[in-house]
Write a protein that binds this DNA or RNA. Structure first.
Lengths: 144, 144
DNA sequence: CTGATTTCAGCTATACTGACATTT
DNA sequence: CAAATGTCAGTACAGCTGAAATCA
């Protein structure tokens, strides 16, 4: 017996968003774990590749993560030589974080994993439907 | 400065799903906390209202939650007289869980909170767009 | 005895808090 | 001195695991 979820929940868009989103993140985490990394590592490398070097604090703000957690993430990524951390000569409180060539390679692999997860999650939808969904989610994400 | 998130992430539907879903669940949890309850309490009461009494194990399976966590949830709900727990006379291993009148009242209040959160989250979308989004998410949720 | 149901104690990961040293 | 940056230790919670108690 497939155990139907309660209709009064599946009729709520909020519920579906939370459920589907959680599944997506779970699948991504599972795939990235194969490379010993987590979704936040992907996000961090992506931010550095998209925008260039950041002060650690700005990186944390861009990803909406706490500075204390960012410190740990960067420790892990620096330990694999995926990024560099250098004191800002102009303001020695700041640490400038940049991506290394190895980091870019890793990012490519991680992005590939994310795309494969996306194919899995969005499998029930046609290409046009995926575009529509993406547009709607972008509006929800932006309209904060 | 509003700290733009990395485009290579926002171009991923998976990322947006996870982000928007997490925000939705977070807002819901915040609103329900005002009544001393959490999203799982709402889900549990909704399942009982939709389908009638359940054996504890069936309830856990329907909501895709672990039986050990279900035991704790039911403790909390029973402590507020929102549900009843009785041994199944036909199979004394099973505990039959049912919703009380007070539970139905609480469910009404919790559902109201959930609808208000939904209005907040879906605010940027028109009514037609909300319908489209709901339909797409239903397909993603069902197509497992 | 085997298997199902429930309960409990504990483990892990994530998100967050607060205190601190360093530098401006 | 006050404010900003980064580091570290510790807290809270959700999700999960495993073992024991009860019963079919």
């Amino acid at each position: 017996m497939p155990a139907t979820p309660p209709p009064s929940l599946t009729s709520s868009t909020t519920y579906l968003l939370a459920k589907v989103g959680k599944r997506a993140r779970g699948l991504l985490a599972e795939r990235l774990a194969a490379q010993g990394l987590r979704p936040w590592h992907l996000a961090t490398l992506a931010a550095l590749a998209d925008f260039g070097p950041h002060a650690q604090r700005d990186l944390a703000e861009r990803l909406a993560i706490h500075t204390s957690d960012m410190a740990k993430l960067l420790d892990e990524l620096a330990g694999r030589d995926l990024l560099t951390r250098d004191r800002d000569p102009g303001d020695r409180r700041r640490v400038l974080v940049g991506i290394t060539p190895a980091g870019r390679e890793a990012l490519t692999a991680l992005t590939g994993a994310a795309e494969s997860v996306q194919d899995t999650v969005l499998d029930p939808l046609t290409a046009e439907e995926r575009t529509v969904l993406h547009g709607l989610l972008l509006r929800l994400h932006g309209g904060r």
